[in-house]
Amino acid sequence: MFQSQKPSVSCVTPSGKTIAARIKGEFFVIGSSSEADLRINAPDVADRHALIRRVDGRWVVQVEGLNPVSIDGELLTGRDRILSSGDKLGIANLEIEFTDPVEVAAREKARKKVTDEARNQEKPTTERPIYLLPMAFGSATVSLLLLLALALKDPDTKTVDFGKISTGSIEAAVSELPACLAAAAERRAGTPGQRELDLRSPYSLLSRELQATGQDGSPKDISAFQATVRRKLDEGMRAETELNDKPMARDAYQQVRELVPDLRCPANLLASSRLAELGG
């Protein structure tokens, strides 16, 4: 692999200095030790605070000992976590960004494929309402609702099979989140007082922010929301296809469904279809 295609990590220190390092091997240590690959000289950083390593073709972060580490604000608790390009590791008071050029290129390729195929589809002449997926129901109800959703969803996403989990379907689903949020904001503006979403959910808060900024605006943390949804779908795919861990996969997909409660939003469709097949 060319040097420029290797992953890297970077952060800005409290003094304003940017430090960065490329991940050249299969293991990468973050800590305060002089032997660490990314050395952070701070009192709250252990000698070996966290380890980034290559596992089955994916980059994962491993917490060393009891050292606190978070990803996009979510504290890791004893389990290795798959890293996606753009994820931000929280160590002490620092935010360390992980960047993987290979993953970025794959996302762009998948996004371009979806866009190119969508252009060949006939555009809808009228908009249809977005339906919402209840949080608790049996697998039979899920299947019926999915059939309804697949019949109603826009042609732009018909070229992607959201019944199957893959890097392409994950990227396509994540790329549709801004459109889903914009539709939710528009629906909310047209129906004041309607409580179709949990007002405390990240999805609802983002749609309200988009409504407040106008259709030309964009919630400042939409990329973080997309990263969280992508990571949960990645976790579900890995648990399902590599680890054969159905409970872990169901847990990840359920979290996606709770993060994105709109039935016609592809991220929800993808997670719900996998739950239905897994018996969740």
Rank of each mutant, 00 (worst) to 15 (best):
Ser169Pro: 02
Ser169Met: 11
Ile170Glu: 07
Glu171Leu: 05
Glu171Lys: 02
Ala172His: 11
Val174Cys: 03
Val174Leu: 04
Ser175Arg: 08
Ser175Gln: 10
Glu176Asp: 09
Glu176Gly: 01
Glu176Met: 11
Leu177Glu: 04
Leu177Thr: 07
Leu177Ile: 14
Pro178Phe: 01
Ala179Gly: 08
Cys180Tyr: 00
Leu181Ile: 14
Leu181Val: 15
Leu181Pro: 00
Ala182His: 09
Ala182Phe: 01
Ala182Asp: 11
Ala184Asp: 07
Ala185Met: 08
Glu186Tyr: 04
Gly190Lys: 11
Thr191Gly: 01
Gly193Lys: 10
Gly193Gln: 10
Gln194Trp: 13
Gln194Glu: 13
Arg195Asp: 13
Glu196Ala: 12
Glu196Trp: 08
Glu196Arg: 13
Leu197Met: 14
Leu197Ile: 06
Leu199Tyr: 06
Leu199Met: 14
Arg200Ile: 10
Arg200Gln: 15
Ser201Gln: 10
Ser201Asn: 05
Ser201Lys: 09
Tyr203Glu: 05
Leu206Ala: 13
Ser207Arg: 06
Ser207Asn: 01
Ser207Asp: 07
Arg208Ala: 15
Arg208Gly: 08
Glu209Asn: 07
Leu210Gly: 03
Gln211Cys: 10
Gln211Met: 15
Gln211Tyr: 01
Thr213Gln: 15
Thr213His: 08
Thr213Phe: 01
Gly214Ile: 09
Gly214Thr: 09
Asp216Arg: 11
Gly217Tyr: 03
Gly217Asn: 07
Gly217Arg: 06
Ser218Lys: 14
Ser218Asn: 04
Ser218Glu: 15
Lys220Phe: 05
Asp221Asn: 13
Asp221Thr: 13
Ile222Trp: 02
Ser223Gln: 15
Ser223Pro: 00
Ala224Gln: 13
Ala224Tyr: 10
Ala224His: 08
Phe225Pro: 02
Gln226Arg: 13
Gln226Ser: 11
Gln226Ile: 07
Ala227Val: 04
Thr228Ser: 10
Arg230Leu: 02
Arg230Asn: 13
Arg230Lys: 13
Leu233Asp: 03
Leu233Ser: 06
Leu233Lys: 02
Asp234Lys: 11
Glu235Asn: 09
Gly236Leu: 07
Gly236Gln: 06
Met237Leu: 12
Arg238Gln: 07
Ala239Asp: 09
Ala239Trp: 01
Ala239Glu: 01
Ala239Gln: 10
Glu240Leu: 14
Thr241Pro: 00
Thr241Lys: 14
Glu242Lys: 09
Glu242Tyr: 04
Asp245Leu: 03
Asp245Thr: 10
Lys246Met: 00
Lys246Cys: 00
Pro247Tyr: 02
